[in-house]
């Protein structure tokens, strides 16, 4: 069976890099004694695939990886076994059984990500400024690709952008087609207020990863947990 595991990565684990996070979960799964499936060959590894790498320094409440198991185990049991072996800062918050085909592969289906960004420093925020920012038809920012720097219009990749409680929240394009990080969005907003990135510091938390509800449905998204889910009633959720 294939399951999708949702986890959070909080203070102080934001400093653990992506590869080390993967290695960490491999050990958790072994300690939890779950009947994980292995690849063939001389150095077999656990069949798991992480949805999207999270940059060092960012926390998250919406990380995912897909895991293959040799035997059927209930989602609740998987969550409980894993939780018993997690260290502070990591938590498993949901588990769902998903279809075993490439179409629903966590890495492939990601289309958007939501972020909560708190700012320390001086950056004026009012509803008016935000709507003024969003009214722009183009937002050209300098983006570095492998070979060159080029001006790119990021406006089409920002689906929502606003202020909630004590920070910005946004829904932006993510995944293999167009991956927009939250920093250039805030920087573009700040630039409009005449504030340079040196004047503030960002605390970024990724809150969810999304797939398109059906192919081409953007900006109509569903959380990754629900994408390819086989049995809604068997889903473990907190």
């Amino acid at each position: 069976m294939r399951v999708r595991i949702k986890f959070s990565k909080k203070e102080p684990m934001q400093y653990i890099g992506h590869l080390d996070t993967m290695r960490y979960f491999q050990k958790v799964l072994r300690r939890a004694e779950l009947p994980v499936a292995f690849s063939e060959g001389f150095s077999p590894h656990i069949l798991m695939s992480f949805a999207s790498p999270l940059g060092v320094g960012k926390t998250s409440t919406g990380e995912y990886f897909d895991l293959d198991l040799r035997e059927t185990v209930s989602c609740t049991e998987i969550a409980q076994h894993m939780k018993a072996h997690l260290s502070a800062g990591f938590d498993v918050t949901a588990v769902s059984e998903i279809e075993e085909n490439r179409r629903t592969n966590g890495m492939r289906v990601i289309a958007a990500a939501s972020y909560k960004v708190t700012v320390s420093g001086d950056l004026p925020v009012t509803e008016e400024r935000i709507s003024h920012f969003l009214e722009q038809e183009r937002m050209e920012v300098l983006r570095k690709t492998k070979h060159k720097e080029e001006l790119t219009d990021i406006r089409p990749w920002i689906y929502t952008f606003g202020w909630e409680n004590d920070g910005f929240s946004m829904l932006v394009s993510a995944g293999s087609v167009q991956n927009l990080k939250p920093e250039p969005v805030i920087d573009a907003y700040a630039a409009m207020q005449g504030v340079s990135p040196k004047q503030y510091h960002l605390h970024i938390c990724r809150t969810e990863l999304f797939a398109e509800r059906f192919p081409g449905s953007a900006p109509d998204f569903i959380p990754l947990l629900e994408c390819g889910c086989i049995d809604e009633t068997g889903v473990y959720r907190e």
Binding site: P12, Y15, I16, G17, K27, S87
Partner: peptide, 9 residues
């Protein structure tokens, strides 16, 4: 930075 944060299993 992982060298300095402790909190290992």
């Amino acid at each position: 930075p992982e060298r300095y944060i402790g909190h290992e299993v």
